[in-house]
Design a protein around this nucleic acid. Structure first.
Length: 689
DNA sequence: CTAGGGTTAG
């Protein structure tokens, strides 16, 4: 570089003419913003006549080095030429630097100078619309494309396909694709991507097959898009064969997509062996594998892999950390959360806001509102997501009033969105704040212009139903302007379980089996209702129905962490080393709480066995086993935290209240929906869950 | 100077 500069200054000093082309080649050799600025300054001092070609090169180079401000300034100074070329270069720079609004604004200036956009302009502009997810602007541009006569131009049409897909107008993507006179591999891959983004996975695969049948060689992007459509193992193997046949198995992005594909199909083992086989692993590769473990509900494996990565002195990026946070929140271990938080702070990464919010959510999910609040209060900036997370946190822990108070503070600063309202409504529901819930529901339309969607209606049904206003809930559903979905009926069914209303439960179930017949929880709930009312025959009928439809019950698991080790219990567990002692202690504890008035609720055992066996089966529920194990192994002063993957069983809930009383211990239970803080014989949920 | 992509908080 120094040498080049020397040549330049020598040339200018000796008045030896150097032309613009020499300058351009000098510019192209600059790989940093600093060197580019130096060269630029020297060129300016040489008083050369600088042509359009030089300007466009400089602008595009400044833009590619990330200095959009310099590029833009240069563009506004370059007073030559009403050629679209220069404008296209500027549009390119803006779009590449995520200045989408600005690029579209620039486009609106073009007609004033009678500059016509060309086949180069439209792909940039359409990409801007796609990134902004603005279908209205996109459609307007499409009209312009038509007027200017570029609708069958390959590049433009390809851009249209992906723009419409990203904006959620899948049908239009398809129409553009079908109308194309010629298609390249990019057109096919864009269309496969459109299918995958719109959730039409089978059709995406079909198109991929058609593409292969037509003899078009799959490229990287079409493979990537096709893998995203794969959810079945046999298909995964087929696509893998195509990847190998086309020699794309060494490509980094294809390799990562392949791993994710197998992981998605339930073959996390294949994903791992691919991962282990990669000689060079980039950060995305680690992120994919860690995330795959988190999604496969294998948080410990995810954390272990993360630690292995750190041992190799690789600095994690924010995406990896987010995946690890996801894994950690499944685990719900406060210790692990503390350790991870330490790691994150020491990474000094950008995107603080995103990471802080994720950590905040992690603490909420690990049951520590105190730590969550500290993170929240220390955040330099907060956005709608951080506020909603904190509000939801208070809601999950049953602090409805605090959630509402926070919501009031938030409203003064940021306009809440539909997710915020879900958080607030569920906070009201978990705390039994009916009047407040109604007020919130009414104000979301009236004061904030947020139109309720099914989630909000489900929250309201939940709120009314839990409070025992089942008829109100039923009326509310009937008056809904939307078609009630599984979430709404599920809320009603849940309320029917609490208040033992068979009639409405049957109504809800009828709709649920059509909408969500694969969900085992529905069958179990209904069966529970019948069992509680002593209608054993009916209860069994639904258990058989579930079996005959091939719906598999999810096994209830409870985890507890002791001295940095995670222990998992399932009902009737015999796999732990000290299991005999645990059962012995359990018997003793059950005896103690029975003296205090605990009566086992046998309706929670659905198997057709005699009373004594039922009682034994209840005792062996994973929640109780984990708590006894915790009592045995944790110090007397520490509170006991357990996490269950399903909702906590009603009998266990009662038992834990008694246990907290007789042992004088605080017990925190996280279940699939919320937190229960047990102390002195009561639970923070007020038996309201 | 163009289009297609793996990971991105509630």
């Amino acid at each position: 570089m120094q040498l080049k500069l020397a040549t330049l200054s020598k040339a200018t000093a000796t008045a030896r003419p150097i032309d613009a082309d020499t300058c351009i080649s000098l510019i192209k050799k600059c790989h940093t913003l600093k060197s580019l600025k130096t060269v630029h300054a020297s060129i300016l001092r040489s008083h050369l006549h600088l042509n359009l070609h030089f300007f466009t090169n400089l602008i595009s180079h400044y833009a590619s080095l990330g200095s959009i401000a310099y590029a833009y300034t240069l563009f506004s100074y370059s007073n030559s030429s009403n050629d679209a070329f220069l404008w296209n270069v500027m549009l390119h720079g803006l779009v590449d630097n995520a200045q989408y609004h600005r690029s579209l604004l620039l486009y609106t200036c073009m007609p004033h100078l009678a500059i016509a956009p060309d086949n180069f302009s439209f792909p940039f502009l359409l990409k801007a619309c796609a990134s902004l997810r603005n279908p209205n602007l996109g459609s307007q541009l499409h009209a312009h494309v038509f007027i200017y006569g570029y609708s069958s131009h390959m590049f433009v049409a390809n851009s249209l396909i992906s723009m419409y897909a990203k904006c959620g107008l899948f049908a239009v993507s398809k129409r553009v694709f079908d109308k194309m006179p010629h298609r390249s591999a990019v057109s096919w891959s864009a269309m496969i991507g459109a299918y995958s983004q719109s959730g039409f996975h089978e059709q995406g695969l079909l198109l991929f097959t058609r593409m292969l049948d037509e003899g078009i060689k799959p490229n990287r992007a079409s493979i990537l898009n096709a893998t995203a459509c794969v959810w079945r193992e046999n298909v995964a193997h087929n696509v893998f064969r195509v990847i190998m046949d086309n020699g794309l198995d060494m490509d980094h992005s294809v390799r990562n997509a392949t791993m994710l594909m197998f992981a998605r199909c339930g073959r996390i083992d294949i994903a791992r062996s691919l991962f282990d086989g990669f000689k060079y692993k980039d950060l995305v590769c680690w992120a994919s594998m860690i995330d795959a473990y988190a999604h496969a509900d294998l948080p410990l494996k995810a954390l272990h892999l993360f630690n292995q990565m750190r041992l190799q002195c690789l600095l994690p990026d924010s995406i990896i950390l987010l995946a690890v946070i996801r894994a950690c929140s499944i685990l719900a271990s406060l210790n692990q959360a503390r350790i991870l938080h330490g790691v994150i702070v020491r990474c000094f990464l950008e995107s603080q806001l995103v990471l802080d919010t994720a950590v905040l959510d992690l603490y909420v999910k690990c049951g520590s509102l105190a730590y969550a609040r500290t993170v929240f209060d220390k955040m330099k900036e907060k956005n709608i997501i951080s506020w909603s997370t904190m509000i939801r946190g208070y809601g999950m822990h049953g602090h409805g009033r605090v959630a509402l108070h926070l919501f009031d503070q938030m409203k003064a600063l940021i306009k809440p969105d539909h997710v915020t309202f879900v958080s607030v409504l569920s906070a009201c529901s978990h705390a039994g704040l009916i009047a407040e819930g109604w007020e919130c529901f009414n104000s979301m339309i009236r004061d904030f212009g947020v139109t309720p969607i099914s989630e909000h209606y489900a929250c309201m049904v939940d709120l009314l139903g839990r409070a025992g206003q089942l008829n109100q809930a039923w009326l509310f559903i009937q008056r809904m302007p939307l078609r009630p979905d599984a979430a709404v009926w599920g809320a009603l069914l849940g309320a029917c379980r609490i208040h033992l209303n068979v009639k409405l439960a049957e109504v809800a179930t009828k709709s649920l089996f059509d909408l969500d017949g694969e969900n085992p929880g529905r069958y179990v709930l209904l069966s529970n209702i019948y069992a509680s009312l002593g209608k054993r025959k009916e209860a069994n009928r639904f258990r058989y129905l579930m079996k005959s439809r091939g719906v598999r019950k999810i096994v209830g698991r409870t985890i507890i962490e002791i001295k940095n080790k995670i222990y998992t219990f399932v009902a009737g567990d015999r796999s732990q080393p000290e299991i005999d002692v645990i059962y012995l202690e359990l018997d003793k504890l059950m005896g103690r709480i029975r003296q205090q008035g605990y009566v086992p609720d046998l309706s929670f055992v659905l198997h057709d066995v005699d009373g004594e066996t039922k009682e034994k089966m209840l005792y062996a529920h994973s929640e109780k086993l984990a708590i006894v194990f915790g009592l045995m192994n944790l110090g007397h002063e520490s509170l006991i935290r357990i996490t269950k993957n399903l909702r906590v069983c009603g009998d266990c809930h009662t038992a834990i209240k008694f246990i907290s009383k007789v042992t004088g211990r605080e017990i925190v239970v996280r279940d699939a929906h919320r937190f229960h803080h047990f102390m002195n014989g009561t639970c923070s949920c007020g038996d309201y869950w």
